[in-house]
Amino acid sequence: MTTTPVGAARRAGPTLILSCAWALGIGGTTMMPLLVTNAMARLHVDEGQATMLTGAEMIGMLAGCIVLPALARRAPMALTSAALLLLALCQAVSALVLPVATFAALRLAAGVCEAQMIVMVGICLACHPDAERLWGLVLLLSGLVVAGVFTVLTLFPDAASGAAVWQGLALMTAALGVVAMRAPSLMPARAVSVALERRHDMLGIWLAWGVFVGVYSVQAGVWAVSALQGERIGLTLPQTGVLLSVSSLLGFFGAVVPAIPALAARRGLTVIGALAVMLASVACFFTAHSAALFFVGQLMLNAAFYSIMAVLNSFISAQDRDGTLLSRSVVVTFAAVALGTVGAGVLFQDAGGVGVIVFAALALAGSVPLGLKALRAPAGVSASPAL
């Protein structure tokens, strides 16, 4: 059957809208290393203080993901519009030299606004029959946009100390917000009365969250010490930044791997294969003695990570009646990021790359049985065969 241009456009429309919304939701976390460096230079604080100040954005995201799902279902258009306007304002005002307390308040508000974008995508994809394909495309497109903007911003001479990074974020919010504003129109009608029927396979959800903890802790841990690893093999900080940003940009293509026809009905095997690739890439990254292996290790780590995220997000959405489960996943995510960042930092300092490899091996090995059990679709839940 031939696909008409109109039919293709109709399918592309919702995907583009959700991708723009998700890109705005993850923009702050993706660019966090650059934001921390910029805050240090412009506010004249040390790295610890800058991390805490920009970390207020993460606190805002966590609070928003807990509070906003119920509110977003009642007034989706009003909340989405207000969040987009406030987010653009927060990014623009952050370009000014501000008192520390004001800057922290702006980052907290920005985090709440980003959470609204995440919540809306979760609500729109809840129980969606084509969630797996859509999640792959949303992760890919949003990732390419955010990583692309990140890469461009790092090329500015004063990116680490000037206002360009905040102005770029404000422009990105304005441009993507025009499209993301339409996200509430994609909400399923049943999302209003979801409280009447909740049939979650909560055991499967908890197991999936266990895999989240494993893969996010490894991803965050490697990212946290990547600059130190680059320095160890003789790379300059600008060289490391370019290699990491480009590997992140290309790594988002891993999100479409689960949609490959040969893998679409084998979610469990896809996740196990991606976990194995993550472990091999971590070993490659920390035993690298050249820029090429450094880049390949990070690229494969990112690609495998986003393959797993596409599968797990669609698995959760298939049982998520109102977007609440996906919002809770964000809370689990940040706990895992904190665990991985602290754990990898201590291990790298005490035992070098070998310590991080062992940490990754244990975390990823523990995720294997959790992923296999979670992705065996329970009776009564519409899903593809797990294996």
Results as ranks from 00 to 15, higher is better:
residue 240 T to H: 14
residue 253 F to S: 04
residue 254 G to T: 09
residue 243 L to Y: 13
residue 246 V to E: 01
residue 248 S to F: 12
residue 247 S to F: 02
residue 251 G to K: 09
residue 250 L to P: 09
residue 224 A to D: 04
residue 243 L to W: 12
residue 254 G to I: 05
residue 238 P to G: 11
residue 241 G to F: 15
residue 252 F to Q: 11
residue 245 S to R: 00
residue 250 L to W: 10
residue 254 G to A: 14
residue 238 P to Q: 07
residue 232 R to N: 01
residue 240 T to N: 11
residue 229 Q to M: 08
residue 226 S to M: 12
residue 250 L to A: 14
residue 238 P to M: 05
residue 249 L to F: 15
residue 233 I to P: 06
residue 228 L to D: 05
residue 250 L to I: 11
residue 249 L to P: 03
residue 255 A to D: 01
residue 252 F to V: 10
residue 241 G to E: 12
residue 224 A to M: 12
residue 243 L to S: 13
residue 233 I to M: 05
residue 223 W to A: 15
residue 232 R to V: 00
residue 246 V to L: 11
residue 227 A to C: 01
residue 231 E to Y: 06
residue 230 G to M: 01
residue 227 A to I: 07
residue 251 G to T: 02
residue 250 L to K: 10
residue 232 R to C: 00
residue 235 L to R: 02
residue 230 G to W: 09
residue 249 L to S: 12
residue 250 L to Q: 06
residue 255 A to N: 07
residue 243 L to D: 02
residue 252 F to E: 04
residue 234 G to E: 03
residue 225 V to R: 05
residue 245 S to V: 01
residue 227 A to N: 04
residue 230 G to A: 05
residue 224 A to H: 06
residue 252 F to S: 10
residue 246 V to F: 11
residue 255 A to P: 00
residue 229 Q to C: 00
residue 241 G to H: 14
residue 233 I to K: 07
residue 254 G to H: 04
residue 223 W to S: 15
residue 236 T to K: 15
residue 253 F to R: 09
residue 229 Q to A: 06
residue 230 G to P: 02
residue 244 L to W: 03
residue 224 A to W: 05
residue 246 V to P: 08
residue 248 S to A: 15
residue 251 G to W: 11
residue 223 W to L: 15
residue 223 W to D: 12
residue 238 P to L: 04
residue 251 G to S: 03
residue 233 I to R: 11
residue 223 W to P: 08
residue 238 P to N: 11
residue 239 Q to D: 03
residue 249 L to D: 09
residue 237 L to I: 12
residue 233 I to N: 03
residue 248 S to H: 02
residue 256 V to M: 13
residue 226 S to N: 11
residue 230 G to R: 05
residue 246 V to I: 08
residue 227 A to E: 13
residue 252 F to K: 04
residue 256 V to K: 12
residue 231 E to P: 08
residue 226 S to L: 08
residue 256 V to L: 13
residue 254 G to L: 11
residue 244 L to T: 01
residue 239 Q to K: 10
residue 228 L to G: 02
residue 227 A to G: 09
residue 243 L to I: 04
residue 232 R to I: 01
residue 229 Q to W: 11
residue 250 L to D: 10
residue 229 Q to I: 01
residue 226 S to P: 02
residue 247 S to R: 00
residue 233 I to C: 03
residue 241 G to W: 15
residue 234 G to A: 12
residue 231 E to V: 04
residue 235 L to V: 00
residue 245 S to A: 15
residue 239 Q to G: 02
residue 241 G to C: 13
residue 241 G to L: 14
residue 252 F to C: 08
residue 234 G to I: 05
residue 235 L to E: 00
residue 242 V to K: 13
residue 230 G to S: 05
residue 226 S to T: 04
residue 229 Q to F: 10
residue 245 S to G: 02
residue 255 A to F: 13
residue 249 L to I: 01
residue 230 G to L: 03
residue 232 R to P: 00
residue 243 L to R: 12
residue 251 G to Q: 03
residue 227 A to F: 08
residue 252 F to M: 09
residue 240 T to C: 07
residue 238 P to D: 04
residue 248 S to R: 01
residue 229 Q to H: 13
residue 247 S to G: 11
residue 224 A to K: 08
residue 256 V to N: 05
residue 247 S to C: 10
residue 240 T to F: 14
residue 226 S to K: 00
residue 225 V to P: 03
residue 237 L to R: 08
residue 239 Q to R: 11
residue 238 P to Y: 02
residue 240 T to V: 12
residue 234 G to S: 09
residue 228 L to A: 14
residue 244 L to F: 07
residue 227 A to H: 05
residue 230 G to C: 05
residue 246 V to W: 08
residue 227 A to Q: 07
residue 245 S to K: 00
residue 248 S to I: 03
residue 254 G to C: 12
